[in-house]
Nucleic acid binder design. Sequence first.
DNA 1: ACACTTTTTCCCACTTTTCGCCACTTTTTG
DNA 2: CAAAAAGTGGCGAAAAGTGGGAAAAAGTGT
Lengths: 152, 152
Amino acid sequence: MISFLGEYESTVDAKGRFLLPAGFKKQLPQDAAAQFVINRGFEKCLTLYPLQSWNPIFETISQLNDFDPKVREFRRYFLNGATQVELDSAGRLLLPKNLIEHASLDKDIVLVSAMNKIEIWDKNKYKEFFDSFTSESFSILANEVMNPKLNN
Amino acid sequence: MISFLGEYESTVDAKGRFLLPAGFKKQLPQDAAAQFVINRGFEKCLTLYPLQSWNPIFETISQLNDFDPKVREFRRYFLNGATQVELDSAGRLLLPKNLIEHASLDKDIVLVSAMNKIEIWDKNKYKEFFDSFTSESFSILANEVMNPKLNN
DNA sequence: ACACTTTTTCCCACTTTTCGCCACTTTTTG
DNA sequence: CAAAAAGTGGCGAAAAGTGGGAAAAAGTGT
């Protein structure tokens, strides 16, 4: 299982391309084809899955019963916008327009590791998110998440 | 088994034709004849099946017991409106009028992957569907769908 | 049954966009 | 400081997308 670490900046050019930072590229298994799936994130960001991370998720979803309306709704929402992308000869990825819009990406973006995938944020949005966090609120959150026994 | 990924926009022209977006066309097996079956969706949308996806479904339905009135009813609903369509030389599909009506398609449409088939939505309807989702309601839905054991 | 109108289907030709590639600049590293 | 790698920009061929006209088919009325 791949897992990423780190946070890198990049810029989107006029055509909607950005360079996958060398830091992440090094973390990809070298046998990995340069193939990814990019999707809307749950928050106002995008999620970039190397194909190896995406496949098992897709596999699970594909086995659900299509005649269940909730399944259809779930799939529609979850798969919406998911797009396969590929590194170009210069190591860049092309962002689909609708996804750029979803995440309100401008020129500067931040790529953040999220376990087996990478989140893509507009630089300012990401900064706002961070600034809104004090070390106390972080500490409380950490305790809630890491110490589930307290949650009852 | 074919499976699609992505979400693309297209427009229906005055004659009821729309261009199958290049993104989807690339995902079709190249040996696939340019043949499709288009049908009413369960929701207010249309469903576009490449012939390979349609055939097994049709096969299943044809094996249901014809003496069961519910089967007859289901078939009537499900099969009526199913129409075979073919790409024209410019890569467009012609939408039957009754289906355009069913999905209230106007000029702008959105084509969305739904595993082995493609859903066709009126752009505004699709947006409404989306906007009606909050990240919480999605979390609940996801939990219901992905964790069937909880549903008893 | 035939002439005429309307609709459908097919195909051609043009415009716009995309994206693969190349070439250049900047940064890193040994 | 040189060489390699990282990062940026942009051209131009090829594909995508659009519109419309003509042929064929279907429909209608006398």
